[in-house]
Amino acid sequence: MSSFFARNRSALTIAGVALLLTLWILSGVLTREPPQINQRAEAQPMTVAVMRSAAQTVERLLTLQGEVQADQRVTVRAETAGRIAALPVELGQRVSAGEVIARISMDDRDARLRRAEAAVRGRETDYRAAQQLAREGFQAQLRVETALAELEAARAELEAVRLDIANTHIRAPIAGVVNHRYAEVGDFVGRADPVAEVLENHPLRAVVQVPQHNVHRVQVGGPAHVSFVDGSEHTGTVRYISARADTTTRTFRVEITVPNEERSLPSGVSVQVRIPVEQVMAQRISPALIGLDDRGRLGVKTVDDDDRVAFHVVDVVRADADGVWVTGLPEAARIITIGQGFVNAGEPVRVVDEGAGS
């Protein structure tokens, strides 16, 4: 037996050590407490940045595109036929009402005038002679009446010749600027042919088409802001609202008078017209803060007094270079500016004022 242990001492030693290790491991597994299942850490509120905003009184504007027209635009036409003999005024020159802007050649009008004057003198002599003879009883009263009719006809012919001569001087019917010529010196014009265009740009008329659902908001005598293509802005007054809608577009023609005493503003150009229709309480925000809810409505996310997200449906009142003015927010609001895309209405959040850091 001793010899067996002697021969197998090493193997028995190793087996003993292995047995002890196995017992030690088993004792740890059996005696330790079962592992605890890690509980999911409670989610922390999302951190958002907010901007504090207070409502202000602003004008709700009806913004429309239109054009400006001259207050008066007249095509001057010839009232007698003939060749253009002279054009005393230049294009672009300002003229007064009644000023001559073109002359037609006299041709035979002087001769016709002398003939008509001679005819009147002859008929006057005949009429006086007929009257004298009638008083003396040598001629019937019928001859007197005939002589008077012939005299009146001669006088009418004389007036017609004088009027025709006067019409050789083509005059501006209104004060304004000679804006266009339809005939040049040497051109032949007939009666009613166009000769020139005269227009008056003071005041200007801004013309817009107002949709039928908004026309009730516009009032005659109300103000309007007119922006020209050169960037200048001018204040005008609504002077006319059509009583009937256009049957094709269902819009109403509205005209706004724009003072232009210096005549520095041209007519015929495009303009943007903004007509104030009411005053509302609104807040100016960046357009980037406006989003859609699950119903497709435009709105802005804010944080309420309980630090929970609220979604407010808004209406855009007007826009300018610094942002958009909207209604629908509380008078004093904490508007989410950073993180609004990661939170939903009703969720609690941790609030940091914009610019204050986390």
Rank of each mutant, 00 (worst) to 15 (best):
residue 1 M to D: 12
residue 14 I to W: 04
residue 16 G to H: 03
residue 22 T to L: 10
residue 45 P to H: 07
residue 45 P to F: 11
residue 48 V to Y: 12
residue 52 R to I: 11
residue 57 T to D: 15
residue 58 V to H: 06
residue 61 L to H: 11
residue 67 E to T: 15
residue 79 E to R: 15
residue 80 T to P: 06
residue 81 A to T: 08
residue 83 R to P: 03
residue 90 E to H: 06
residue 95 V to L: 02
residue 110 D to V: 03
residue 111 A to Q: 03
residue 116 A to D: 02
residue 121 R to M: 10
residue 122 G to R: 14
residue 127 Y to V: 01
residue 130 A to R: 03
residue 132 Q to F: 04
residue 139 Q to S: 04
residue 142 L to C: 00
residue 143 R to Y: 11
residue 150 E to V: 00
residue 156 A to D: 08
residue 157 E to Q: 04
residue 158 L to A: 05
residue 162 R to I: 03
residue 171 R to D: 01
residue 173 P to E: 01
residue 173 P to M: 01
residue 180 H to N: 06
residue 184 E to K: 07
residue 192 A to M: 11
residue 201 N to K: 12
residue 201 N to D: 06
residue 202 H to Y: 01
residue 207 V to S: 12
residue 207 V to K: 13
residue 211 P to D: 00
residue 211 P to H: 03
residue 216 H to I: 09
residue 218 V to E: 06
residue 225 H to I: 14
residue 226 V to C: 08
residue 227 S to W: 04
residue 234 H to N: 06
residue 238 V to P: 08
residue 246 D to P: 02
residue 246 D to T: 04
residue 259 P to R: 07
residue 260 N to E: 03
residue 266 P to D: 08
residue 268 G to V: 13
residue 270 S to E: 10
residue 276 P to F: 11
residue 278 E to V: 04
residue 282 A to L: 08
residue 285 I to V: 07
residue 290 I to P: 03
residue 298 L to I: 07
residue 310 A to V: 14
residue 310 A to T: 15
residue 313 V to E: 12
residue 315 D to K: 11
residue 325 W to S: 05
residue 326 V to P: 13
residue 326 V to E: 09
residue 326 V to M: 09
residue 327 T to K: 03
residue 333 A to F: 09
residue 349 V to P: 11
residue 349 V to E: 09
residue 353 D to E: 15
